[in-house]
Design a protein around this nucleic acid. Structure first.
Lengths: 232, 232
DNA sequence: AGAATAGTGTCTGTCAGACACTATAGA
DNA sequence: TCTATAGTGTCTGACAGACACTATTCT
């Protein structure tokens, strides 16, 4: 009576939580990859993640955050569930499910820490083909990238790839890196105004030409969503 | 070596797959609810779903489909992953994760079968408050409804609430029921034309006035997505 | 002054909202 | 003919794309 579900327990699917942590570094979209210390796929590169620790985690969100903090030492600025991937064959140990999150950080927030460890590194998405990638993580990363691109077309999520203070040119640049296409500066400015999620500070910053207005995200605002996509 | 993950196995989260099956019936959005035959929440109403059967299911998609077929005897016209819900407290047995799908069927496809069983029924979303609902399923249904509404604003998904052959008026009606607001017939027609996912048949149907053009979804087409939302 | 970047003004194109108009069926 | 519903024509408004223009900083 206490555990009537136990009969199936030994056949329970393997359940893990993984994250696709993106950043924009050197003008390119990058993903955090971790060298696997365990079987299966030992020594290959995979997404940061692992099993839920039911004694520590209150939810899978916390699992994702905990695993990311272990690798980067900080919480990402943005974290959202992507989707679960499951199959009887994706893990040699049997039927497995991985609940995948995708996340964004400013490169400056984490790179100093990542440079000190050798089991985690940023991988340029263009160079992912050259890496030995574990499981179906290459496919998962593609899905995450696609979702991020879509979000970039109708929301202000890309701002979470930037440090606290930033300029319009920086925001324009990360959006362009994410969607892989130039956008109209004017369109972005219209959206910044309409979103009301940014605060223009009494501060300007050098840019090689006229000083640029510095912005920050207003505290506790929701990410703006627009009813129309930028075109791809 | 064969099962190095076994040490954690007894602490593995409980993992289930549930589905929010929607239909439009009598001009209202309805959800399939199932009376629970087991603890916890025995005799209360919950979403159709259950444990993965790793001997049968190749993926969680198949689990969702299998469980829905058990209750409705048919596969839904549309099935998509919503998201996973997890917490240490949502199930009295401990940390649990449910991977939730949402699905659409034409009412005509299933109602005859559902009427013959007494452990499953359609529940009007407006009347869900009057029902004893298990777990956090009420919350999950709200999330699924919200996602469905969003999809209805920028895609043709609502067509999967209709039988194979349908008229513009019927499509307009299910969209309006889903988003809870009238839409412009003209806007819908523009989208039908632009989507190129429908075929106008050599067939008209009585409507009380002029005969209405009958449409069907072209075989194997993708659901059309638009770059702009209808307004809510 | 000239180059570089920031920011504005404004025209065009697309498409949703609105609504008047025409068309065709049954009573 | 009257009513009901199907379907068209077309104007307006919102907003993205395009791009010329002005503004400000450094060299």
């Amino acid at each position: 009576m206490t555990k009537p579900y136990n009969i199936n327990d030994f056949k329970n699917p393997l359940f893990t939580v993984d994250s696709v942590l993106f950043t924009v570094k050197e003008g390119r979209l990058q993903v955090l990859m971790v060298r696997r210390a365990n079987e299966p796929f030992i020594h290959q590169w995979g997404l940061p993640g692992g099993f839920v620790d039911v004694d520590i985690d209150q939810s899978t969100d916390e699992t994702a955050l905990r695993k990311l903090k272990e690798k980067t030492s900080v919480a990402p600025q943005y974290l959202e569930q992507l989707q679960a991937f499951s199959s009887a064959y994706r893990d040699p140990r049997g039927f497995s499910v991985t609940l995948v999150y995708y996340a964004l950080v400013a490169e400056q927030e984490v790179s100093c820490h990542i440079d000190t460890v050798d089991d985690a590194k940023w991988v340029d998405l263009e160079e992912l083909d050259d890496l030995a990638v574990a499981f179906d993580h290459r496919f998962i990363i593609e899905q995450a990238q696609h979702r991020l691109q879509q979000k970039a077309l109708y929301s202000m999520v890309p701002v979470y790839c930037l440090p606290e203070l930033f300029t319009i040119a920086q925001l324009k640049s990360v959006i362009e890196v994410i969607i892989g296409k130039e956008i109209q500066r004017k369109s972005l400015i219209r959206r910044i105004d309409a979103s009301e999620m940014f605060e223009a500070l009494d501060e300007k910053v050098k840019s090689g030409g006229r000083l640029a207005q510095v912005y920050k995200v207003k505290p506790d605002v929701d990410i703006a969503h627009f009813e129309r996509n930028l075109s791809m």
